[in-house]
Every structure is written in structure tokens, then in C-alpha cells.
Design a protein around this nucleic acid. Structure first.
Length: 230
DNA sequence: GTCCGGTCCA
DNA sequence: TGGACTGGAC
């Protein structure tokens, strides 16, 4: 049976990969650094997250055990460059407490995918995108991470009805039509982020866009304003 | 001034 | 649904 969506998704992936090259996600060493980075990068550019990670490393607190024993205000001070630092310090503390309660990170990362996802979502401050980032990049599970870039790009390409499509619907677009390959999903998501910040911005930079041939509204022709009927 | 690799709460 | 959370880069 012909799967047009699959063909379009694979074509998009190949185009992005050819244009930008492998993105090398997730940067950093070890699953705990991925977990921490996933929280720190919430609504925050990675550049700012990096300094926070440097601070945590320098303080020797980039392990669940060390972080669990860190006073909240000290943790907040270390992650200050990542923004939302009081809130994120609380979120990291909650997350680390859950990890320690659950027998440590390696035990946690061995939980079945559905169970791990549910447990992560039950931690205050962990939403679907953060949970899925951890599932994919720290635990190596074939889940597709959906963010604002993903929604915007797919909507403009006509693969989604509108930018506010529910999270599970967007995830399914990928998992229903592509093989469950964590390597593919990880690279694909990273490429969408790259394309979203470099080209397919709110105000898109269409001239010279590598995806123009696959896009219904290339160049300032029309439709730079999304109609977006809720 | 605007934008970030979101999430929670009223 | 709209703010609040917060700092740094462009």
C-alpha cells in the first residue's frame, strides 16, 4: 500500500540532513547530563544551558547523588545562566528525588517505555516534550519529540492541519509512518530544530531554503501569516 | 525589544 | 486561554 506521508517525511529528512548535516544530538556525556539538560533547556536556548552545565560540572554536582545533597539555593545559583533558575532548581530537585527513590538512574532507564514515560510525567515540571527528550536521548527509546518548531514546519509543509494539533497526534505522524529507530528520530528532531531556528522561523526566510521544493508556500508569495483556526 | 530545544496555574 | 517563571544572545 502506498504511504504518501511516509515518502514525504523521508524526503524531508533526507533534504534536511543533506542541507545541515548530522547535528550530533544530544551533546554531552552520559544519561544524567542529558536528563539535566532536558530540564534546563525548557524555553531556553542551548547556548545558555551550556554555561549552567559547566557550572554544575565544575562544582562536581553533575550526578544524581551529588545533586540530591545540594541545598536548593546553591543549585539555583549554579544553573542561573539557564534562566528560570528557581523554578528549574525545584524541578531538578524533584526529578533527582524521584530517581533516587527509584533505585538510581540506571534502574530508572531500564523501565518499560510506557511506565517510564508515565513516571516522568508525574514529576512536577516534566511535561511531554521534556519526558520524550529523556526517553529518546537518555533511554534510547523510539519516541518522537515534538516541539514548537516541529509543529510550525509540518504545518507549513501541509503535513499537519494546524500548529495546535495535539501532542500525541504530532508524535503519531512520525511513529505511524517511520520505522521505530531512535537514531533516526533523534537526528530528525535535531534537524527540525536547526531548520526551525535558521530558516523556518515565525517570519520565514524562504529564499534559498533547502525545503522550498517540498513547501506549498515558499518565498513571500502568500501565507506567511498562519490562518490557524483553532 | 524579541526569542529561546516548556510547564504550570488561575 | 493567558500569564509567570528568568537570564542571556542577537
Amino acid at each position: 500500500m502506498a504511504d504518501r506521508t511516509r515518502d514525504r517525511l523521508l524526503e524531508l529528512y533526507q533534504t534536511l540532513l543533506a542541507a545541515y548535516g548530522p547535528q550530533g544530538w544530544w551533546p554531552g556525556e552520559g544519561p544524567f547530563e542529558v536528563v539535566v539538560g532536558a530540564v534546563l533547556t525548557q524555553a531556553t536556548s542551548w547556548r545558555n544551558v551550556e554555561q549552567a552545565l559547566v557550572n554544575l560540572k565544575a562544582a562536581g554536582t553533575l550526578s544524581p547523588e551529588a545533586m540530591a545533597n545540594l541545598p536548593p539555593d546553591e543549585l539555583a545559583a549554579l544553573i542561573r545562566p539557564a534562566g528560570f533558575f528557581r523554578q528549574k532548581a525545584r524541578r531538578l530537585a524533584e526529578l533527582v528525588a524521584w530517581i533516587e527513590r527509584s533505585g538510581g538512574l540506571s534502574s530508572v532507564l531500564r523501565l518499560p517505555t510506557a511506565e517510564l514515560r508515565a513516571s516522568l510525567l508525574a514529576v512536577p515540571g516534566i511535561g511531554p516534550e521534556t519526558a520524550d527528550s529523556i526517553l529518546l536521548y537518555a533511554a534510547g527509546r523510539p519516541v518522537f519529540v515534538v516541539d514548537a518548531y516541529t509543529r510550525r514546519i509540518l504545518t507549513r509543509l501541509g503535513l499537519l492541519p494546524h500548529e495546535h494539533a495535539p501532542y500525541p497526534e504530532v508524535t503519531r505522524l512520525f511513529t505511524d509512518h517511520l520505522p521505530p529507530d531512535p537514531g533516526l528520530y533523534g537526528e530528525y528532531h535535531a534537524l527540525l530544530v536547526r531548520h526551525g531556528k535558521e530558516r523556518c522561523r515565525k517570519r520565514p526566510r524562504c529564499p534559498g531554503c533547502p525545503v522550498a521544493a517540498q513547501c506549498p508556500f515558499p518565498s513571500g508569495s502568500t501565507c506567511t501569516l498562519d490562518p490557524d483556526p483553532r
